[in-house]
Write a protein that binds this DNA or RNA. Structure first.
Lengths: 224, 224
DNA sequence: CCGGAATGTCGCAGGCCTGTCGCAGAAGGC
DNA sequence: GCCTTCTGCGACAGGCCTGCGACATTCCGG
C-alpha cells in the first residue's frame, strides 16, 4: 500500500482528510506541524507528501524545502483560498502540485494519483544519450564533459523531446508542450528552434546525432 | 525473477535499497565495493547492475568499464547530488541511466524497469511480421535487422495496413486514411504507393511477403 | 486461345517539406 | 535607460516526394 504523509495543523481537516484518503486506499501518516512532519518522514519514508502551506513553527514552504533537500519525494501543497499566489509562484521550493482548500477528497485522491504517475513516468534525474547529459533537476546540459548553455526555449524543447527518447513528436505536440497554451503560430517556429538547438548540440547538424527529423511527421530525440 | 546486482559501499543505503528492491520483486545481490561487485557479477550473472559512482578501491567508473568489457549488461549509475557531471560525461564510461541520490525506491524501480525494457526491446508499440519490425512510436522500420527508410506516404500506408493485419483495405479506404482530406484523385495512386513500398520491403515484389494484392478489392498486410 | 479489365512498372516535372539566414521587436539584466 | 540576448517571422533555396500519364504485364471469363 502506498504511503502518504499528511501535514496539516487544523485537527478537523487533518482527521477528515486522513479518513477519506485511507478509504481511497492510501496508508496515511498524519502530522500536525512541520517538525512532526519531518520526523515522520524519516520514519515512514512515504511515497508522497501532502503539505499545508500555513503551519505553526516551520511553515509549509520551509518544510517543503527541507523535504526536497532530503529526497525527491513528490509534494502536493494545500493552500487556503486567497493565500498569496505570488508567493507560491515565486517559491523555488517547488511543490509538484497545488490544491486549494477546501478540497474534496475525491479531487485530492485524483491529484495524488496524477502526481505519482508523473513522478514514476517522468522521474527527475539525469537523462543521457551519447555524450549528452541532461540533468532535469539542476537543468544543466553537458556535452562531452563541456557545459552547454541553452536558452529557455531550447531547454524546454530538449527536455520535452528527451522525456520520451525515440518517440516522434509532431510539430503540433511540440508547440503545445514547449510553447504551451495552444500556441497558434506558424509551425515553422519548431523548425527554427530545432535548428538553433542543433547548432549547439550537433557536430554536423546535417547529420544530427541527437535530434532527428522524421520527414512528414516531426522530430525525435535519441538513437535511431 | 530478475536478478539485480547492487554495488554500494554505504551499508545503510545498500541495505535499504536491497530491501526496497526485493519488495519490488527483484532478486538483489548486494556488494560493498567494486571488487566484490565484479566477482559477484561472474557468479550471479545478473540482468542489470546498479552501481554507485563513488566506491572504495575500484571506483564506479572503472567498475562500469570493466563490466562493459565483459558483457552487455545494462548499468544504472548512482550519483550523489552535486557530483561533478563533467567528470561523468567526460569519461565515457557509458552507463545506461543515471540516478541522483538520495533516490526513492519507487523511482529506482521505475528506472530499472525502463532500462530493462529498453535493453530487451520490449515490444511496446511494436508490430512485427516475419523480419519486419514497425515501431509505431519512434516511427522506425526494421527489416531483418536493417533499418529501412520510408517516405511519409509509404510510412502512413504501412502504418494503416499494419494496424489491422490480414484485413483487406479497399483503395478508397486507403485514399481516405493515408491521403486524408477526401482525396479525389485517381485510385491508381494507391497502386503506385504500394509498388514503391514493396520495392523497399519485398525481396521479390512479384511474390510479396508483406503486402498482398486482393484482386478486385484492394490490399492486405500480413500472412495469407 | 482471346479480349478486356485490373494491376505492375517506369520516368518526369512540379511542388511540398525542411534547412538556413537575417531582421526587428520583445524581454531581461545591469 | 541602455545594451545584450532571445524569439518570432518571413523569405529563399535545395532536395526529395509524389502525382500523373503511359506502357507492360498478369489475371480471368468466355
Amino acid at each position: 500500500m502506498t504511503s502518504v504523509l499528511l501535514i496539516e495543523d487544523d485537527p478537523l481537516v487533518r482527521r477528515s482528510l486522513e479518513l477519506a484518503l485511507s478509504r481511497h486506499g492510501w496508508a496515511v501518516a498524519p502530522a500536525q506541524d512541520g517538525e512532526e512532519g519531518l520526523a515522520l518522514f524519516e520514519q515512514k519514508a512515504p511515497e508522497l507528501v501532502v503539505l499545508d502551506l500555513m503551519l505553526p513553527g516551520i511553515d509549509g514552504l520551509e518544510a517543503c524545502r527541507r523535504l526536497r533537500e532530503r529526497a525527491q519525494v513528490p509534494i502536493i501543497m494545500l493552500t487556503a483560498r486567497g493565500e498569496d499566489l505570488d508567493v507560491i509562484g515565486g517559491l523555488e521550493a517547488g511543490a509538484d502540485d497545488y490544491v486549494v482548500k477546501p478540497v474534496q477528497p475525491t479531487v485530492l485522491d485524483a491529484r495524488i494519483r496524477a502526481v505519482l504517475r508523473r513522478a514514476v513516468r517522468d522521474p527527475e534525474g539525469i537523462r543521457s544519450h551519447k555524450g549528452l547529459l541532461i540533468d532535469t533537476e539542476a537543468l544543466t546540459i553537458t556535452l562531452n564533459g563541456e557545459p552547454v548553455s541553452l536558452t529557455p526555449t531550447e531547454l524546454r524543447l530538449l527536455l520535452t523531446l528527451s522525456r520520451a527518447p525515440r518517440r516522434v513528436f509532431t510539430r503540433e505536440q511540440l508547440l503545445e508542450d514547449v510553447w504551451e497554451y495552444g500556441y497558434l503560430g506558424d509551425s515553422r517556429l519548431v523548425d527554427n528552434a530545432v535548428m538553433r538547438l542543433r547548432a549547439k548540440l550537433e557536430e554536423s547538424p546535417s547529420r544530427p546525432e541527437y535530434i532527428q527529423t522524421v520527414r512528414g511527421f516531426g522530430y525525435r530525440f535519441g538513437p535511431v
